[in-house]
Nucleic acid binder design. Structure first.
Lengths: 357, 357
DNA sequence: ATGAAAGCGCTAACAC
DNA sequence: GTGTTAGCGCTTTCAT
């Protein structure tokens, strides 16, 4: 038991009140700081015997490296920033969990920040970069924001369309096209789409996919009234926000309209779906008996409500995994060229749409 | 792309590869680094004229402070660690959001980590402390873990019962006592409680509150069969895990039992409630007509399912807010003594329990 | 009010 | 293999 500086107690209560430093360890082990450093970093050679001694002394002194100092010196903080719009959102909560686990395994810590607005976003990113993060995983608030960072960035779910930035997204256009098509195939001719913020690229894609399918066979996309084989097709798109409240209000509006009623409602997010479910319940409307109900993503209550709904499932897990792996790849090999990965959602037939016609 | 932002003005001899440092700014502004530093930190005196010049030059050079270096030197990283079991859990997602917003306003960044198991927990906390975090907000994995950190800790939702550690919790025992009592008052005499991991202090509290109410008037707490004014009371407690799957399995087991059937089921978490709802639906049992249904916390589908349920609402927002404020308080004034705050849940009468008897 | 200088704890280059 | 040394970028005395 080597007692120096009175720092042999486990709680690191040395004279100055601070914890044992590498220098303390080196001195107590009778080696130079360089050797001690090499013991922990693994860079360079250290004799096995010395190594053990350093390790033992470090243990005794309760030594813990100061990663602030290490980061400052080596210019690699082992910090990764995760910037997203809202931790409360199921999508991002799941993503965070996956990203965190993977980064942790790779020896990184996660600096998390949520930035709702576009102004916030730049400030947030800059503050995070002030900590010299090694990389960033970012769910952009808007498609316009162009941001140059001094480290690799991977954009998740949404793209800012900045050149040379890696991204992992889901092909919502294709997904909604497929979903809408399947609705048409089942005989639905009056379709309503309740969707979120029009400014988001994902919203635009979802609307595009929806309209695309409606107009596809007639070549008259983007028209609210299209003619479909087997009868005239009517549709309505209600953009608002990705919230239960909007889903609720929009659905009530649809149901209250006198000129036109949808035979199937498509909720473009799980939160919107929750609002729609509430509105339908309040009106005593039971899908799929009285109306068709389809949704993007699947909240847990789908398991027991109304016999299920037709759902389009985004590959959440895969997206988060891919994004993390791409970032890790760029970190380990900076020459890696950033790529854009587009994954596909999975259409899962549910019971809340029935075959008519 | 090799060229970076650097000394595009003729006077600076800064390194071409990295970003402008305080030294660069000082030189370009014709002042010493000390003055430049004081300009940004606000510590010490700087002439107004000089201040403006430094600020302008910094802007021109795109100077950003290196918070790793600042933290190393000043021993205040402006980093706060948030350690919790699961980001996916609604409770913790909401908490994270609130905590993040508040800390951000106070000038701190959030280092988030989830640590499911007890072994994980210590490692996670240590890695986080290696970054010299100024404080920690912690949802302990177990009640036993005793951990000495070199910085203030506030425990959220659960307590490790370590001496001298601040905590913000909810009085689950009182809440469940009240909830159970209200069920008894409505005439229910056969009560089942489906709850999570027995090892957690919160679980123990919930069970205790439940049993407490059952045995209260007869003084025979902790008995499975108690006599209550107005008839014999039977009860059953099913501990498992806080998951929809356990709620589902436990509920099916209850419904399948031949010896005894509950007249009301209490789900001790929203996830468990989801599983219970699924089981009831599968069996064609509709609350509150066929059975009573009460739950802790209120998932969004309560708004439209089965006419509502009797719920006990934990004050999530307040808890997160208080925890953050307590930490911030300790950070700004280290002499603040850590305190334990216990908040109360709110009992909200719902429609899935009916009055019988 | 300001500059010079001494480190914070660590890594990396270099000598031996 | 190992010790020594020079900083990383910043804050903070301490003289002016």
């Amino acid at each position: 038991m080597v007692a120096r500086r009175g720092a042999d107690r486990g709680d690191g209560a040395s004279a100055a009140g601070s914890r044992a430093s590498l220098k303390d360890v080196a001195r107590a082990a009778g080696v130079g700081v360089g050797t001690a450093s090499r013991t922990f970093t693994g860079n360079g050679y250290v004799g096995e015997e010395t190594r053990q001694r350093v390790l033992r002394v470090a243990e005794e002194l309760g030594y813990r490296p100061n990663r602030l100092a290490a980061g400052l010196r080596s210019d690699t903080s082992h910090l990764v920033a995760l910037v997203l719009p809202d931790l409360t959102n199921e999508f991002y909560a799941v993503s965070s969990q996956i990203i965190h686990a993977r980064l942790r395994d790779a020896g990184y810590q996660l600096l998390v920040a949520s930035a709702g607005t576009v102004e916030d976003e730049k400030k947030t990113l800059e503050s995070l970069i002030d900590y010299r993060v090694d990389g960033i995983i970012h769910v952009p608030a808007s498609s316009g924001s162009r941001f140059r960072a001094p480290c690799p960035i991977v954009e998740l779910n949404r793209r800012s369309h900045s050149p040379g930035i890696a991204s992992v997204t889901c092909d919502d256009a294709a997904g909604f096209r497929e979903l809408t098509r399947s609705l048409l195939d089942r005989g639905y001719r009056d379709l309503a789409l309740i969707v979120g913020d029009e400014g988001l690229s994902t919203t635009q894609e979802r609307i595009a996919g929806f309209r695309d399918a409606l107009g596809a066979r007639e070549g008259t996309a983007h028209s609210e009234d299209t003619v479909h084989s087997g009868g005239a097709v009517h549709s309505r798109v209600l953009p608002g926000s990705y919230s239960a409240d909007w889903g609720h209000r929009a659905c009530l509006e649809l149901l209250g309209a006198t000129d036109w009623q949808p035979s199937v409602i498509v909720a473009a997010s799980p939160r919107i779906a929750t609002g729609v479910a509430l509105a339908l319940t309040q009106r005593g409307i039971v899908p799929p008996r009285d109306i068709g109900f389809a949704s993007y993503s699947s909240p847990d209550w789908f398991s027991f409500w109304g016999g299920g709904v037709q759902t389009l499932l985004p590959p959440l897990d895969q997206m988060a995994r891919r994004a993390t792996d791409m970032l890790l790849g760029q970190l380990s090999d900076p020459t890696t060229l950033p790529s854009s990965v587009v994954l596909s959602g999975e259409l899962r037939p549910g019971g809340s749409v029935r075959s008519i016609g």
